[in-house]
Design a protein around this nucleic acid. Structure first.
Length: 352
DNA sequence: TCTGGGGTCCTAGGACCC
DNA sequence: TCTGGGGTCCTAGGACCC
């Protein structure tokens, strides 16, 4: 599916999440470029480094978006707009990248302002003009209103943010539940008390893959899981984290998706332990001969790997040392320089 | 038109504890 | 034989975001 579309392609209806077949039908002369995540990450780091030159209060939202709390700069800068322009100019001259800037007194209005500023613009919504800015927007513009919520709101005849602001609370709560109703009716009038948080912690690490052909045997599924367990384990170790909970995700050919999870006393960052947990969960999942389109592994319940950990009976420290050695070899000779026996096509799939 | 991969947050039920 | 109230943790699923 399309991860991102240029403005030229968007004219044809090609945008994020559109399946590539459909995208080519919509725009036969479409130019498709495979993603290059390393390049994006490298660029992201440079942009974020510039952000932090402006303020330490940077809350990353994704690779290419962040909230900056610049209220502390008030004494030094002539205006919020001047800060935004300076930021935009710095990114352009130092990195050659365009950036859109939204300025407001709350996070979600700033986010919407930056949407309105795209591409490569700047939009300031002063505190006194927030309602004026929000009212005509479609409710789908609000952060947190997706397909399901949009449909529920449409049933109440709510289309714009102004409609939402005018809606009596009880009816909204019946349709959406107390929590979401409360949240959205606050946003509708520009009320968003959430501060910019720079202390973000990673909550989970996962790896999954959708296969072009359904996996049909247990051996195939296990081989896929071995690869995922390796990736999750390596990323945990790189981040210095260990996980207490392992979650298996299976999507069948009819797109139904199940998850099974297991929580243990001792956090782990060991590939083989993550793999063994996933295998136990797989046994519980009961594939019943159904074709498997996707499998994935997620690790959560994270803590610092150096933290005191419960010793498990039968635990073998050598696996941990093995993983560290493999990490080291791969960092020098590439990922494919060492593979688990069961992923080596030249060998029978009996090894671990 | 069949629908990626990496995440976060919420809900609801059940087990368990005091 | 019927059974409180408060709390935490775990599990499964789903909505949503980029």
């Amino acid at each position: 599916v399309v991860a991102s579309a240029s403005y030229e392609a968007r004219v044809f209806g090609v945008r994020s999440a559109v399946p590539s077949l459909r995208a080519r039908r919509l725009c036969p002369h479409l130019i498709v470029v495979p993603p290059d995540h390393r390049a994006y990450e490298a660029a992201s780091e440079e942009v974020f480094a510039i952000f932090r030159r402006f303020t330490p209060l940077v809350e990353g939202l994704s690779l290419d978006e962040a909230f900056l709390d610049v209220s502390g700069l008030r004494l030094h800068a002539t205006s919020p707009v001047a800060v935004g322009e300076d930021l935009q100019r710095t990114i352009r001259t130092e990195l050659g990248l365009p950036a859109s800037v939204g300025i407001a007194s709350t996070k979600f209005v700033a986010k919407l302002a930056s949407e309105a500023a795209k591409p490569d613009g700047l939009r300031h919504v002063p505190a006194g003009r927030v309602r004026e800015f929000l009212d005509p927007l479609p409710v789908s513009a609000l952060w947190g209103v997706g397909e399901a919520t949009l449909a529920a709101l449409a049933r109440l005849g709510i289309e714009t943010v102004a409609d939402l602001a005018a809606q009596p609370r009880p009816a909204l709560a019946r349709a959406l539940g107390d929590s979401l109703a409360d949240h959205l009716s606050r946003l509708a009038v520009g009320d968003d008390p959430r501060p910019v948080r720079s202390d973000h912690e990673v909550k989970s690490v996962s790896a999954e893959e959708t296969y072009p052909e359904d996996l049909s045997t247990l051996a195939e599924v296990e081989a896929a899981l071995r690869g995922h367990a390796d990736r999750v384990g390596a990323r945990l170790r790189r981040a210095g984290l260990a996980a207490r909970t392992v979650t298996l995700k299976v999507r069948f050919s009819d797109f139904t998706t199940i998850t099974r999870s297991e929580t243990t006393a001792g956090p782990t960052d060991v590939d083989i332990e993550i793999f063994d947990a996933a295998r136990r969960l797989l046994r519980r999942a009961d594939l019943a001969g159904r074709g498997v389109r996707l499998v994935g592994i997620a690790a959560s319940g994270l803590s610092e790997a150096g933290a005191p950990r419960q010793l498990i009976v039968g635990e073998d420290e050598r696996w941990h040392r093995l993983d560290s050695a493999v990490d080291e070899i791969r960092s020098r000779f590439g990922h494919d320089s060492v593979v688990p026996a069961r992923l080596n096509p030249g060998r029978p799939p009996s090894g671990r």
